[in-house]
Every structure is written in structure tokens, then in C-alpha cells.
Design a protein around this nucleic acid. Sequence first.
DNA 1: CTGAAAGCGCTAACAT
DNA 2: ATGTTAGCGCTTTCAG
Lengths: 340, 340
Amino acid sequence: MTPTIKDVAKKANVSIATVSLVIHNHERISPETRLRVNRAIKELDYHPSRSARGLASKKSGNIGFIVTEDHFLRSEPFYTRIFLGTEFEARQNEYYILLTIIPADFKKGDKLPRCVLEHNVDGIIIAGKVPEDIINHLVEYDIPMAFVDYYPPSENFPVVLIDNFSGGHQATQHLLNLGHKNIGFIAGDIQHPSIRDRFQGYKMALEDANIEFDAGKCITDEDYPARENGYNAAKRLWENNKDITAVFSCNDAMAIGVMQYFKDAGIKIPEDVSIIGFDDVEADLSLDPPLCTISVPKIEMGIEVMRLINDVLKDRTKSAKKVLVPVEIVHRKSTAQVKH
Amino acid sequence: MTPTIKDVAKKANVSIATVSLVIHNHERISPETRLRVNRAIKELDYHPSRSARGLASKKSGNIGFIVTEDHFLRSEPFYTRIFLGTEFEARQNEYYILLTIIPADFKKGDKLPRCVLEHNVDGIIIAGKVPEDIINHLVEYDIPMAFVDYYPPSENFPVVLIDNFSGGHQATQHLLNLGHKNIGFIAGDIQHPSIRDRFQGYKMALEDANIEFDAGKCITDEDYPARENGYNAAKRLWENNKDITAVFSCNDAMAIGVMQYFKDAGIKIPEDVSIIGFDDVEADLSLDPPLCTISVPKIEMGIEVMRLINDVLKDRTKSAKKVLVPVEIVHRKSTAQVKH
DNA sequence: CTGAAAGCGCTAACAT
DNA sequence: ATGTTAGCGCTTTCAG
């Protein structure tokens, strides 16, 4: 049988309370006993049982990671990376992550994730947009929460967001630097805060360069950000704006569709038109030409949000920190100096 | 305070033992009491605490998923998909998965994953090749194990493997069907069992078609299966075999490099040479032309291995099942009828 | 068919 | 500085 705290206590000639204190590095333990206990622990290869600990301390040692099914599957490389980041950081802090995928249409009466109901998580990370109903339901359990890549409904939650404004600005600035003046803008749902911020960055960069904003060069009403919609958006954009020499596509999936359209239309990239995306997904490298884009540090976002929730767990009075993770441009062959 | 089993017992006018029995669907409980208890459970919105259960029953409700760091990061879309599969199936069986990434160089004395030491998992899934030392160490804990995409050192473990032989055969057969007779073979480490099986499939298909096997058309000594090595392999293959009209690359990463080489060499795909890969990764679709390949059902592999371990957990006398998951060819533009 | 009671292995007052 | 002890919330004999 695997050893318990009693075995350690017996072996070290102390009470189980003392063993517990030693395990938790309590101060007022004489160096000698500490040594004796630690030796016993080592010799027995003792490890406290997670369940027993959990029951006694009301701490499970787990963090829930909640994401909607369609986010997780549709933008798979994105949220899985964030998940991995939380996982890496969790290990540093002796936590395990319980991945929990919820339906996108969670409604008021629906059952909360099992890990919450069973008191099997000490905190929750919410990744991407989730229905407000679940958040409202979750707060009732008054369990610490942190958000990543989604602006929470209340100011009082820690959150990690992408610096979308800067990303939009950098992308546009890069095109401007190459001499482009007629720059198209393509996005999926402009209602989404991230997209809106990228749009703002685009506008601001134009403004800084004294170039008038032209709504006719912006396609922002495609359903969702996928290749086929990028293709359609590029088609509509081009048919009405033969003068554009560059396109900023708000995400790479759409950018890939955009590239496809221009190829099909016999327009050369980057000779005739430059294209820049946003996200930096793996497929970008396989494209011909490889896609210039704004790179988002997904793993780091996960690490960061795990740190935030960890801070709250260590000290629940901590105020809710907001973190804006920086993005950076990745130069690849899909953009070039404008032709004169 | 959240309700406990006591609250339910009080409300239903029974003992806590009865509540427990009802929860576990024990038979010899009268329909009336069962009803009464269930109503109390519902009214109080009672959910048993995972920790308390774990302590009393010695079942954590968790499954460990062990994979080495370099596998997980290098072939990320592959093992993450398998992980997701286990996760999906785990939910059906009321388990949570604890993802545990171990260093690739785990040695005899090294610490086992924390979840094992703390008795926080009821079973373990091992994905991909791991050092034998950790397996030997793990068996001492006599905790149920199942393997996926790695042939375990002992016959006594359940395992889920890709039908690599069939995949190699299908790929080659497809090229043969298109009239190709001079088919190159490219692989990374031929020592790897999966690769060896694909090689066998290739040979067998040739044999079936009465085409003599030519070792000179096989490049099997590249270091590891990456794009750059595919490129180099294709170069060596082509320089010594100007007569080949098709190439079977044992994995898509290398196939992408192969395509790049032929493009650089001015050889048209698929007009001059057909290319088929193995894996079906996302990037395949972004290639020009899109890569014809053998598709591996990663999610299903995860589901399958979770089922296996679940079977063992339900009935520990169950014999160790072996599952060979089928693969299928995905027809895309990188292969064509041979020119006459 | 149901209840009483003894733990499971640990934490955290409270004593000493 | 260390020990005593009362739980934490559940499962599981064993009685009745």
C-alpha cells in the first residue's frame, strides 16, 4: 500500500499535524524535526493524496478551461495553443487544467460544467466569447474567473487580450511604408470587439498618413471568417475598386481566400497587389507566396491568463489586472513595394 | 453553502447511506424512496463532491494523458488531435483528462508525473513513443494503461495503432492505378515501426502489381521527417532516377518539401510527377496543387484509446484489446494519370 | 430495503 | 514548537 501521512509521522516520530506543517513549509518547526520528517518522506516516497487534500482544504488543485465547441474546433490551432499555454504555466504552479468544451448556445437553465458542480476546480479560465448566461450562472458560485481573448461583461475580472488596435495599425503602416495608398480592408464580423479594434488601427494608420478613409474599400459584412468568405469579399472588393494595390485581411483564414481570388483573377501577388493577414497560422508558410501577417503569441496568452488566475487564487483581494499582449508583424513574400 | 449528502438525506427523510445507494443506482432501493431522494437531489441541486468521492472510493475520476514534449510540440496538430479525441470520449464517460507532458529523456530515477504520485488518475493513456524507463516505473504503480500510436513493450496493454501497412499499400496502389510504374519512396527514420509498415505496404503493392522493387528509388535515411529533409530527399531521388513519374512520401511534412524541390527544379506537379503524402495535415489544402494524401483519423484514435482504457477500468479482467484504425486516401490534385 | 457507523487521508483550530 | 482532535463529504460493510 502506498504510504500515508500516518506512516510518515510514525517513521519520523512526530504527529501527523507536524508532518502536515512540514509539507506546507510552516515556519515554527524546528530545523531538526523538519529534517527528520523530510527524510521520512523521502524514504517512504510519500506523496499526499490529492483527494484527501481536496476534501480537507476545499481546494481541488484544478483550474477549469472553458471554451465553446465551435471556437475550439473552428479556430482550432488558436484556442488549442492558448490552452497549451495555460497548461505549461499550470504545471509551474502545481495545477492541472480541466478542459471543458461547452455548446455555443448555452442557455439560462443549462447544466454547468461538471467540474464546477462537483467542486473540482479552484478557478476558471474562459477563452473566447461565451454566452453571457453561463457567466452569470458561474458568478453565483463565486469562483475566481479570468478571461482570455474575450472582453468580459464586468470590469472586475482579470483579462488577457490581444493588442488588436496596434496589430491593425502595424499591418496598415507596413503597407503604407511600401508606398501603398489604396488599401482594402476585409473582415468577418465587424461586431466582434477584436475585429473592431483592428479596424480602428487601420483607420488610424491611414489618418496618420493623411490618407482619406474610404468605406467603399472596406468589406466587413461577411458571415464568419473563413476562406470562402475571404474569397467572396476579395471578389466584391476588387470588382468595385480596381485601383487598390494592397489588402489588409483581418485574419489569415480569410486572407488565404483573398489570395485565391486574386490568383484566379490572374492578378499577381505581390506584384499587382500586396496582401497582409492577421493571426499567423501554420498554413501561411505553405502558401505561394507565403503570407505576410501579424503574429499573435497564443502560447503566451495562455501563460499570461494562467498567471492572472493564479494571482487571484493566491490573494483573492488582488485587483483585476488587464493584460494587453503585444503582436508583431512577420514579413513574408505576399507584400511588396507598390508599382509606380 | 452548497448542499451535501446530509442535506439530501435530511430532506428526503432517509440516511446518507440510502442517498449514496440511490446515486449509484443500486437495485434494492424501493421505487418510492428512490423517487423521494431524487426529488430532494433535484430540489437542492445537489452534486456529490469529487474530492470526497475520490477519498472514499479511491477513484479520482481522472485519466492521465502522457506524451513527450517534443512529440507534442513537433507534431502538434497530430497529438493534440488525439488528445482532443480522448477528451471528447472522456466526457461521455464522466472522466476528465489530465494532460501531462514529459521530457523526452525521462530516465530511471526521474519523478513520475504528479498526477500519478498523488493518486489523482485512475488510468493512463500514453501517446506516441515514450522512454521505456517511464513505462517500467509506471507499471510498479499497477495503474491501468493504454497506448496510442506507439507499440507498447509488453503484449498486455490495450493499444490503438494506425493501419500503416494498408495506408502504404493504398497510396502505392493509387499511383499504380494511374499507370505509374516508377514510383519513388521517401521517408524519415525507417527504424520507426509506423514508417516500416508503410514501407512494407509500398513494397507489397508493387509486388502485387508485378513490379520489381528497386531500393535505388527509396530514400529512407533522412534524419527526421521535416520539410527540409523532404526537399533534400527529393533532390537525391531525382538526381539518381530521372525516370520516376511518382513519389510516395511517407508523411506530409516531407511531401511539402518534395513538392518544393520539384517546383524549384521546374518539374510540374502533377503533369510530370505525381506526389502522394501521408497524414492529411491542414497545410495540404493550401498547397498548389493541394496534396493528395492518406488521411489518418486522429480524433477517432483518441476516442478509441479512451474507450479501451474505460473498458479496463470498468472490468479489470478484460483482455488487452488491439485496435488498428483504418486510413483512407484523400484524392487531391497532386496526382494524375502518367504521361505516355 | 434501509440505517448506523467506521473509515478514506488530510487540514486546521486549538491545546499544551 | 509540536500534539490532539474534530471534521471535510462520501463509500461501504454490516446489522437489522
